[in-house]
Design a protein around this nucleic acid. Structure first.
Lengths: 242, 242
DNA sequence: TAGTGGTCTAGACCACCGT
DNA sequence: CGGTGGTCTAGACCACTAG
């Protein structure tokens, strides 16, 4: 029988929070099955329907996936290529292309105030800065400034650049045990400075879209800050609203 | 006892579809209360929990709002000012401003292919085109091309222009009985043609954001097409992703 | 076949709302 | 106070998955 956090909360919310905390603590990792509903019901001393309602909440929050007949699994958030949804590129058959990535710069810095604030660090705290270019068949699509807090991501400072791979988030998980669960993105518009125009193959001053992202873990702690840049003319994004 | 649509569907989905169809048919309008859960349970010959699950679905879909102790109500989708979430303007105290609208042009046309397709009409079908400017304290924020199918919106063709009001959707509902329930928007970037630059107070060729929207009724039928334009430099949009 | 989630029932009591 | 939605129980049976 687990200890409950807030006696005033309904049972199903307390169970939801208990499960969420155990996922955040790493008791189950993405892809793992959580215990069966009847086991959880017995463990928490509640009816099955109450556990189902708790899991419903976590499914809505994107933390858990149900698979009938198999179990309920911690969801692996898969937005390694999410930035590309703004700059969709398809091959001749209309299938989406996964761009390759190349690491252009890597250095240790003191976090400027804006990045420090986004990462929840003190200004001047040490960070690892990456500058990355993503391209499709040699054609540049996106440039990215990426900031990672140190010493959390120390291992990446000396890791061979050619082993970084096209998708960083699985790489963070493998090398540093850091699991990205969700993110907040802000889209705005600007003009390409020469530093960006050159690798993107644009004229200096060309209009670009700027996508700023803070990626968070299951415990809502900031893990990564990045700012991505792409040609404004190729930007397109669709939303459904109610 | 109502007739059910698809015997293979679970009960709660059939009840959800029945309620959704009755809302789409106008049996209850936005703001109206739907029958109490126990009444619906008896009416459909099912247990209370089954009706609750059906209503849960409609709440998730944004069609219904629950209010404890009062009832469940058809939701009035309120995105009259949703376009402004991309161009947030606040007063000195940080409160959002509701811009005023002025109708600059109004004419009956034959729908060009793109607009006809979006509205589900044959190319060349008659539409009412509006051109509108939205401003804050005299400062232009957004220009909008709006297309409405005829004869559905016939009443607006001759309605006094100064009675259109700042928000069109409540106006459509009042004058034409057309209720907008949801919409799909596509954001892209472009450059201001003189026709747009002048009213927006921009230089011709200035970068602009283009937001194309198709607004739908509860029955998913297209009601309105619009394309909104604003200065790219003032654009900002935040999204949470999982 | 055993184990999982999915649907459904028929209750009970609580929390909130308006009169 | 009566009526509403919100929580919770203790079952039953079904549908799907894997070995």
């Amino acid at each position: 029988m687990p200890t409950f956090l807030d006696e005033r909360q309904p049972l199903y919310l307390r169970i939801r929070d208990d499960l969420a905390a155990r996922i955040a603590a790493g008791e189950w990792r993405p892809g793992d099955a959580i215990p069966a509903e009847d086991a959880l019901a017995e463990h928490h001393g509640v009816a099955l329907g109450t556990v189902r309602k708790a899991i419903d909440e976590l499914v809505r929050a994107g933390m858990i996936e149900r698979r009938q007949g198999r179990g309920s699994f911690v969801r692996r958030s898969d937005f390694g290529n999410a930035m590309l949804r703004f700059f969709r590129h398809t091959d001749a058959q209309g299938r989406p292309l996964l761009p390759s990535a190349s690491l252009l710069e890597r250095r240790v810095e003191q976090a400027p105030p804006e990045i420090a604030a986004a990462l929840g660090l003190a200004a001047g705290a040490p960070i690892l800065m990456l500058f990355r270019l993503r391209s499709n068949q040699g054609e540049p699509i996106l440039a990215e400034d990426i900031a990672l807090p140190l010493p959390r991501f120390e291992a990446l400072a000396d890791w061979p650049a050619d082993e970084f791979g096209d998708l960083l988030y699985p790489f963070y998980e493998k090398v540093c045990g850091a699991i990205v669960a969700r993110a907040r993105e802000r889209i705005s518009f600007g003009y390409a400075q020469p530093r960006l125009a050159a690798p993107l193959g644009l004229d200096p001053g060309a209009p670009i879209v700027v996508i700023e992202r803070t990626a968070l873990g299951y415990d809502a702690a900031p893990l990564e800050w990045r700012r991505s840049y792409g040609a404004a003319e190729r930007f397109s994004y669709t939303i459904d609203i109610q």
